[in-house]
């Protein structure tokens, strides 16, 4: 944490350095003052602005850059340059990247060997077996009732439910997969590009959404353990889903055990470029994706972790790396890391 805060008052505009004009809305106050203003650029060789003379006090102008670098757009009044109202311009090449969506469902495929309520021949008769995923998904006290109990079969390397002393099956096999809420490729792409275009970064989303139904809920709580980055449940997902680390991987899985909207960690701990999204919790999963990718790919921090005196969700309420409903901007100091 540094004992500083982003400088206030400097407005930045980002531009592609390929010579294409980009729009910029400017307002001159008070009304009528625009007639005296002539727009000029600190570097008028590599940058251009049009029109240079304004026709109204609020209008769209266009600026372009032919090389990477920084300059200033200066509203000149006669020979007078008011440097407090300059707009800083940064130009750089647009960077492309690809992300993909992996939807993860929890597989529950236990097999009811003996129908519920039926009597068995012996107290060790198997009433529920673990199914294809070789993991007993049925939950003690919820699916497994009465005096039915679980035993581990070393020779088969699996767990099964047996009838117990009363020789009656009192358990239901848990065989309903937990299906994760789907998310839209188009909305994800549009949202990422809406915000990351500020930092001249373009996202493409792989048109193929990968859906995996795997067994990751090892503690049978019906939730994914996101209390740490590397744990048995997340590892099960990494092992099944990370087949292509050339892309950014959005792992979409419902029911996080901490009620969070999403999760990612900084690249140093995240070589496979993973971001978790929990669409059944997140009120705006696409904004969550924008925020999480900031952590996981660009090492962006929360402003309240980065700067002293920034309360959580307060002060810079428009900053995407903050919390809250008004987020819509990356700041210039963040653009510098979006590369």
């Amino acid at each position: 944490m540094v004992n500083a805060s982003p400088k206030k008052g400097i407005q930045w505009k980002s531009l592609r350095n390929d010579g294409t004009f980009d729009k910029l809305k400017i307002e001159i106050t008070p009304n009528g003052a625009e007639k005296a203003v002539y727009l000029t650029l600190l570097d008028s060789i590599n940058y251009d602005v049009r029109p240079k003379v304004l026709s109204s006090n609020a209008q769209n102008i266009e600026v372009k850059a032919n090389q990477a670098g920084e300059t200033s757009l200066i509203p000149k009044i006669g020979y007078f340059i008011n440097d407090t109202i300059q707009i800083k311009i940064i130009s750089k090449a647009l960077v492309n990247n690809i992300a993909r969506i992996v939807i993860v469902n929890e597989s529950n495929d236990d097999v009811q060997v003996v129908p519920y309520g039926n009597t068995t021949r012996s107290d060790t008769t198997i009433v529920i077996s673990s199914g294809n995923n070789k993991f007993l998904d049925s939950r003690m006290g919820i699916d497994i009732g009465g005096d039915d109990s679980v035993i581990y079969r070393t020779w088969a390397k699996d767990s099964v439910v047996i009838a117990g002393k009363n020789k009656i099956c009192e358990s239901h096999a848990y065989q309903t997969n937990i299906v994760t809420t789907s998310i839209s490729i188009t909305q994800l792409r549009n949202t990422l590009n809406k915000y990351y275009s500020q930092g001249l970064y373009h996202w493409n989303i792989d048109p193929i959404v990968i859906t995996k139904t795997i067994n990751f809920d090892f503690n049978r709580d019906g939730m994914i353990d996101v209390s740490s980055w590397n744990n048995p449940e997340t590892k099960a997902i990494y092992d099944s889903c990370i087949i292509d680390n050339t892309k950014v991987n959005f792992i979409v899985v419902d029911n996080p055990n901490d009620g969070s909207n999403g999760m990612s960690v900084f690249p140093i701990i995240n070589p496979n470029k993973i971001c978790f999204l929990h669409p059944n919790i997140s009120p705006n999963v696409y904004m969550t994706a924008t925020h999480e990718i900031g952590h996981g790919i660009f090492s962006l921090k929360h402003p309240f972790n980065e700067f002293i005196g920034f309360p959580k969700g307060g002060k810079d309420i428009y900053n995407i790396m903050n919390y809250g409903n008004y987020r819509n901007k990356f700041r210039k100091y963040q653009w510098d890391n979006i590369k």
């Binding site: 996101v226 209390s227 740490s228 980055w229 901490d258 969070s260 999760m263 990612s264 960690v265 900084f266």
Partner: peptide, 20 residues
């Protein structure tokens, strides 16, 4: 210790990253 983006996560050790 590493700074974690999520407050509910226990910070991991930088030495562990060196091991990785």
């Amino acid at each position: 210790l590493n700074e974690m983006p999520k407050e509910t996560m226990k910070p991991t050790k930088l030495a562990a990253d060196a091991v990785r």
